[in-house]
């Protein structure tokens, strides 16, 4: 009996020891040197693995940061300047301040503005609806409303609004990772400069049809009339293919374009209410 016990213990010990020795040498031989700073940088990142930086996840971004000579081309849109500042601190590089951005869906084709002309009954994704036809309304450019952007968003920054038919971005939660920009088959989503108090003046339309066609499909379509372009003192507005576009980097939020837009395609958000616009709106409706 006791012999068996001794044998067992001895055998197991020998196996254990030899395995340990082998492992020791193998570990030595095949050791891969990894910069410890990669772990450190990764630790300071948000860890969302959203891909908004253009790399496959936070680890890949951390590796890129460690390798890079400066941080000019690298930015974590989720963490923003704070995160990039701490990354710069770890790596001993100079932090580059980037302006915060926010996503915006350039379509205001809500149910009120854009009457439905048919009903879609297929797989409920924008990508498939877009591959079938132009959409449930006469506007071939606008939002389809099945929420591919909502599915793509990792940060719950997009809400589907059944009452509107068009999703809304929640500015406070949006980190401008760009996942929704890629997901939208109609290319409606734009990353714009983030202004204080989330104020914005935007052309909420992508319709490139001629004025009449656009207007017929949607009461708030941009008809490319060019009034806003003339009104803008900062050259922020350009008209191309019957469509106005406001460059958020040049825009000074003066809101003059909002007043002149005949279809209310240009919208302002998060400004204190003003009286003039209300009157303007009434005039419009009586004229109709």
């Amino acid at each position: 009996m006791s012999v068996t016990v001794i044998y067992t213990i001895a055998t197991l010990s020998i196996i254990g020891t030899s395995a340990a020795v082998i492992l020791f040498f193998v570990a030595r031989k095949f050791k891969v040197y990894e910069d410890p700073r990669i772990d450190e940088v990764e630790g300071s990142l948000p860890g969302a693995n959203c891909g908004g930086c253009g790399y496959a996840g936070c680890r890949a971004f951390a590796e890129a940061c460690v390798k890079a000579a400066d941080l000019n081309d690298l930015n974590c849109p989720v963490g923003g300047n704070d995160t990039m500042g701490s990354v710069a601190g770890i790596l001993g590089l100079e932090a580059v301040k980037k302006e915060a951005r926010v996503a915006f869906i350039r379509c205001n084709g809500t149910c009120d503005h854009r009457p439905k002309t048919n009903i879609f009954d297929g797989a409920d994704t924008c990508a498939i609806a877009a591959s079938v036809y132009s959409g449930e309304t006469d506007c071939q450019w606008g939002c389809l409303g099945y929420g591919d952007c909502f599915t793509a968003c990792e940060f719950d920054a997009i809400e589907l609004r059944a009452d509107l038919g068009v999703p809304k971005i929640i500015d406070d939660k949006c980190v401008a990772c760009g996942a929704c920009v890629d997901a939208c088959p109609k290319n409606l989503i734009e990353l714009r400069k983030k202004f204080p108090k989330d104020r914005k003046v935007v052309v909420a339309c992508r319709n490139q049809d001629k004025g009449g066609v656009a207007r017929k499909a949607c009461s708030t379509a941009c008809i490319g009339c060019g009034k806003c372009e003339k009104e803008c003192k900062f050259d922020a507005i350009t008209i191309e293919n019957n469509l106005a576009f406001i460059d958020s980097d040049k825009c000074k939020l003066c809101r003059k374009c909002v007043s002149v837009c005949p279809t209310n395609a240009i919208t302002e958000e998060n400004f204190p209410p003003r009286k003039i616009k209300e009157e303007k709106k009434e005039e419009c409706s009586t004229a109709k």
């Binding site: 297929g122 797989a123 994704t125 990508a127 498939i128 591959s131 079938v132």
Partner: peptide
């Protein structure tokens, strides 16, 4: 199941 809807999309 909308098999072909998705396959057509994937094929594209």
């Amino acid at each position: 199941r909308p098999l072909l809807d998705y396959i057509r999309f994937g094929k594209g």
